[in-house]
Amino acid sequence: ANDNGATIAGQSYLFAFKYTCNQDNLTNTKVKLSSTSVSEGYTDIGSNVPMHNSGENYFVLKGNSNPTSETSYMAVSAERFGYFSGTSGFNFKYGNFDVNELPYNWTGIALYQGLTTTTKQWD
């Protein structure tokens, strides 16, 4: 979901994600979705994920009971580095900490991926 054609289709449920970070003891990490644009309109999906450490981290989001209404973008929010949604050529949009807009540009690689389905996985 780095605005490279990997958007989330409408009427889909985001049910799991993975991301790579370089910090230990991270708390307050969330997944956010926006159906507005890649740079604004983000809302929380589920609650904070458990504390975790650097490297690849995998999470299941059991609290997402609502499908996307239209094509959406995914972003990951973590307390120390904001959240990212890319544009192209490793230039990413980001916001500091738990915000709903991505007003700044950053050059680097933000590694995260979401899994979606059009079938609700649980009640």
Rank of each mutant, 00 (worst) to 15 (best):
A1E: 09
N2E: 09
N4G: 15
N4Y: 07
G5I: 00
T7A: 07
A9G: 09
S12E: 10
Y13D: 08
L14C: 04
L14T: 06
A16W: 01
A16M: 03
F17T: 09
F17P: 01
T20H: 15
C21P: 00
C21I: 15
Q23A: 13
Q23W: 12
Q23L: 08
D24Y: 05
D24E: 13
N25F: 04
N28F: 09
T29K: 03
L33F: 10
S35Q: 12
S35W: 06
V38F: 14
S39M: 05
E40N: 14
E40W: 03
G41P: 01
Y42R: 01
T43E: 09
G46Y: 02
S47Q: 13
P50F: 08
M51S: 14
H52Y: 02
H52T: 05
N53D: 12
S54A: 15
E56C: 09
F59L: 01
V60I: 13
L61S: 05
K62E: 12
K62I: 10
K62Y: 12
N66S: 13
P67A: 05
T68E: 01
S69I: 03
E70V: 06
S72A: 12
S72C: 06
V76T: 03
A78R: 11
R80I: 14
G82H: 00
F84I: 01
T87V: 12
G89K: 02
F90L: 10
F90M: 12
F90H: 12
F92R: 08
F92E: 14
F92C: 12
F92N: 15
F92Y: 15
K93C: 13
N96I: 14
E101D: 15
L102Y: 10
L102K: 05
P103V: 04
T107P: 01
T107E: 13
I109V: 11
I109R: 11
A110N: 00
A110I: 00
L111A: 13
Y112K: 02
Q113P: 00
G114R: 02
G114E: 00
L115W: 13
T116I: 06
T116K: 00
T117H: 00
W122P: 05
D123L: 07
